[in-house]
């Protein structure tokens, strides 16, 4: 049985030792124009949004905000984001999610990407406390927690850094973070700010 560690060792060797490709992939050929698969303005059948009601094995049972019920299957090839790229075990009942994948004939969404509790908030900083930003977003208050070692800041499009000292009270920011379910609190993944 191949463990995750074995797989990492194999893939590391593949990319760093200059192995010769034996397959037939041709990226240029694969760059065909994307199919116009969904009418603009229409619901996207290959996308699911909602909250997780039940988890059975690798199947998530999700209730959408419009009340529609969806089943989402997660595989080893599915990316799972929950504050950082993480594993399926971190996904919990009650979490909110966005999932993109391929809708199968039986109605199940075979997920390729799963973003759990992800939020994208335009706000201004009303105050700053110890490892916490107090944000005002559309008239409501949000407590945004800094996670040292994970939280990054992008100042005016420059490479992300962990230094948050240039953030200013009163400044406008965009925050990508992970919502803590059923609270007005989030954990910060990335802050985008002007300087």
């Amino acid at each position: 049985m191949t463990t995750k560690l074995d797989r990492r060792v194999f893939l590391t060797a593949a990319v760093l030792t200059g192995a010769t490709a034996v397959g037939s992939l041709d990226p240029a050929e694969a760059f065909a124009a994307p199919k116009f698969d969904v009418e603009p303005g229409a619901p996207d059948p290959n996308f699911v949004e909602g909250r997780i009601g039940t988890i059975t094995g690798t199947m998530l049972f999700v209730t959408g905000s419009d009340g529609v019920f969806n089943r989402v299957r997660v595989t080893g090839a599915t990316s799972v984001w929950k504050l950082t790229p993480t594993s399926f075990e971190k996904v919990a009942v009650g979490d909110g999610l966005y999932a993109r994948g391929v809708r199968m004939a039986d109605g199940v969404l075979a997920a390729e990407s799963l973003w759990v509790n992800i939020v994208n908030i335009e706000a201004h900083i009303s105050s700053i406390g110890r490892n916490v930003l107090h944000l005002e977003h559309h008239g409501s208050k949000i407590v945004a927690h800094v996670v040292p070692g994970t939280t990054a800041t992008v100042y005016n499009g420059t490479p992300a850094i962990s230094d948050m000292s240039l953030l200013k009270v009163g400044g406008h920011v965009k925050v990508i973070g992970a919502w803590i379910p059923d609270t007005n609190e989030i954990q910060i993944a990335t802050v985008y700010a002007g300087v």
């Binding site: 969904v38 303005g41 909250r51 905000s65 509790n117 908030i121 335009e122 949000i142 989030i186």
Partner: peptide, 27 residues
């Protein structure tokens, strides 16, 4: 951005200025 009264801080967002906005639609 999220819209359509979804979960989390999106809960009070509503369906946008056009009244049709939903996070799951191509908009």
């Amino acid at each position: 951005f999220c819209c359509g009264n979804a979960w989390g801080p999106c809960g009070s967002t509503g369906h946008g200025a056009c009244g049709t906005c939903n996070s799951g639609s191509r908009q």
